[in-house]
Simulated scan of single mutants.
Amino acid sequence: MTEAIAHIGQDRYSTKIDIGTRSLMADEPPSRGGGDTGPAPYELLLASLGACTAITLRMYADRKQWPLASLDVQLRLHGQGETLRIERVLAPTGLEPEQNARLAEIAERTPVTLTLKHGVPIDTKLV
């Protein structure tokens, strides 16, 4: 099971996030009233998708013993509210065109990709 705890105090929007033995900060940029002490929530969402995509595709290439030298995953969030969409651009180096095409297919089935596409129920409780 994966767990995280987000804690916010009096420092406007600066939020400490504890994930197991690791911590990171989230915040809003000054243009939104924050102190820019860390990525904004949607930036963290894109980071999660990018990391999952990169790791999954690296695992796949390694399993296939493909000579993937590197992979950049560029992500952009477009729209607002109900019209949000994510643009993902893969830039692998070291592979043949057929292998690149296969990586693009696999990217559509990474765990975080599927979670975002299908949604996940959120049960909120107050203690």
Score class of each variant (00 low, 15 high):
Leu75Lys: 08
Leu126Phe: 11
Gly94Arg: 09
Gly20Ala: 08
Tyr42Pro: 02
Asn100Ser: 10
Leu77Lys: 09
Glu3Gly: 09
Ala4Pro: 02
Ile8Arg: 15
Tyr13Val: 01
Ser70Cys: 02
Lys125Val: 13
Met59Ile: 11
Ala47Val: 08
Asn100Pro: 00
Leu77Glu: 04
Pro30Asn: 05
Ile55Glu: 04
Gln65Ala: 13
Pro41Glu: 09
Ser23Pro: 03
Ala54Met: 06
Leu44Tyr: 12
Gln80Val: 08
Glu43Pro: 04
Pro30Trp: 00
Leu116Trp: 03
Thr115Trp: 06
Glu3Ile: 06
Gln10Ile: 11
Ala4Lys: 09
Asp11Gly: 07
Ser14Ala: 14
Gln65His: 13
Thr53Glu: 05
Tyr42His: 11
Pro111Met: 07
Leu71Ile: 12
Arg63Glu: 14
Ile19Thr: 15
Gly119Pro: 07
Pro121Ser: 13
Met25Ile: 11
Leu57Gly: 04
Leu46Lys: 11
Pro41Ile: 10
Asn100Gly: 12
Leu44Val: 09
Ala61Trp: 03
Leu24Ile: 12
His7Lys: 15
Arg88Glu: 11
Leu116Thr: 06
Ser48Tyr: 06
Gln65Arg: 15
Arg76Ala: 14
Ala61Arg: 01
Glu108Ile: 01
Ala47Ile: 09
Leu46Val: 10
Ser48Gly: 15
Glu98Lys: 09
Gly9Lys: 14
Thr113His: 14
Ala51Thr: 14
Ile5Val: 15
Glu28Thr: 10
Leu68Arg: 07
Ala104His: 04
Arg32Pro: 01
Gly9Asn: 15
Leu77Thr: 06
His78Tyr: 00
Gly20Glu: 11
Ala26Asn: 05
Ala40Arg: 14
Ala47Tyr: 01
Gln80Thr: 14
Gly79Ser: 05
Ala104Ser: 13
Pro97Phe: 07
Thr83Ser: 12
His78Gly: 00
Asp11Asn: 13
Ala26Ser: 15
Ser14Arg: 15
Ile17Asn: 01
Trp66Met: 09
Thr53Pro: 02
Ser31Val: 03
Glu43Leu: 04
Arg22Lys: 12
Arg109Trp: 08
Glu98Pro: 03
Leu126Pro: 00
Thr110Pro: 02
Tyr42Thr: 15
Pro67Trp: 04
Ile19Gln: 12
Tyr60Trp: 05
Glu28Leu: 15
Glu98Ser: 10
Ser70Pro: 01
Lys125Trp: 05
Arg109Ala: 12
Glu98Ile: 00
Ile8Lys: 09
Thr93Trp: 03
Gln10Lys: 12
Asn100Phe: 03
